[in-house]
């Protein structure tokens, strides 16, 4: 029996988002098909992986993912330069975790200085995320957005509790914005609508439906992402058409499987390989579900995922 390939036609399209300035801009999104469905539509841009760095030394990271950055991660500037120059990062994600009240409680001014220092050291696009403390993130991200004015960064994350201040800061300083809600397609949609109602351009948004690590609720993120992408493409729902973020590293590198030693759990095998694989498999699953932008930590995990992306496009 002759086979007629059952192809889908999609009515919607994901917005293209360009970040960075000058010769070093990168664009992601813009496809009008499900992830990697190049056989029935266009996928002009490949997904982007940003290397995660932070404003304070990564003492909270497991040893196996601290190791690749040994000797350079005590200073965000040398860390950022190492990612750009040695690891050939396409983008860098600076997490201002040190501003969290339970951590070093750094001030918004300190955060702004770190942002300025990092930006003056690198050419690749920068993503700036707060410490995920809704209250503190507001002043921190305002200061960070001003410090990065006109560098066309991504700032985030705007959440229901704090979005107004952060949206205003992104708008005033010409940045893109991450809107994060908690594992629910309707909450995602609602937050995107609230943000655009403030006059923020929908095409400058990135949706973060909230990440989860392999084995720790990954299936929720996976299905929410699939549903968002289907709404964007098959129902042409414009509120669901911004590209999506998978903020993978911070979720993966705190679960037991990325840390427990082989001596403690011999049936799990090598701790180092396990951690790297955990991060890479989480990344692949979310790419398949619809993420266009990933934030990751381990250079070997990133390298492997890049290689697979190459094979998929």
């Amino acid at each position: 029996m002759a086979f007629a390939p059952p192809k889908e036609t999609y009515s919607g399209k994901v917005y293209a988002v360009t970040i960075g300035t000058g010769e070093n801009t990168i664009t992601f999104g813009e496809e009008n098909v499900l992830p990697f469905h190049t056989f029935e539509g266009i996928t002009p841009n490949r997904p982007i992986i940003a290397y995660e760095i932070q404003d304070v030394p990564p003492i909270d990271w497991p040893e196996n993912v601290q190791k690749p950055y040994e000797g350079i991660s005590n200073d965000p500037v040398s860390w950022a330069k190492f990612c750009q120059d040695n690891l050939k990062a396409n983008a860098i994600a600076l997490r201002l975790i040190g501003t969290h009240p339970d951590r070093e409680n750094r001030s918004p001014e300190d955060a702004a200085k770190t942002v300025r220092d990092v930006l003056s050291a690198i050419d690749v696009p920068l993503i700036i995320v707060g410490s995920n403390h809704a209250e503190k993130d507001a002043p921190v991200l305002v200061a960070a957005a001003e410090a990065a004015k006109d560098r066309n960064c991504i700032i985030g994350k705007a959440q229901e509790a704090n979005y107004k201040t952060i949206v205003a800061a992104a708008m005033a300083n010409n940045h893109k914005l991450i809107a994060m809600s908690e594992l629910d397609i309707n909450l995602s949609k609602q937050l995107n609508i609230l943000i655009t109602q403030m006059g923020f351009d929908r095409e400058r948004l990135i949706t973060d439906p909230m990440c989860s690590a392999l084995g720790y609720g990954l299936e929720y993120t996976y299905s929410v992402m699939e549903r968002i992408r289907l709404a964007a493409l098959t129902q042409n729902d414009v509120t669901m058409q911004p590209p999506m973020l998978g903020d993978i590293g911070m979720y993966v590198w705190k679960v037991k499987e990325t840390q427990a030693s082989e001596t403690d759990v011999p049936q799990w095998g090598s701790t180092e390989e396990r951690g790297i694989t955990w991060e890479a498999v989480t990344a692949i699953a979310l790419l398949i579900a619809g993420a266009e932008l990933l934030i990751m930590r381990h250079p070997r995990a990133i390298e492997a995922v890049e290689k697979v992306i190459e094979e998929l496009i």
Partner: peptide
């Protein structure tokens, strides 16, 4: 390898 199995088993279980 055991580390690889665990990751693949877990993904299968999740999905």
């Amino acid at each position: 390898e055991r580390w690889k199995n665990l990751a693949l088993f877990t993904l299968r279980q999740n999905l």
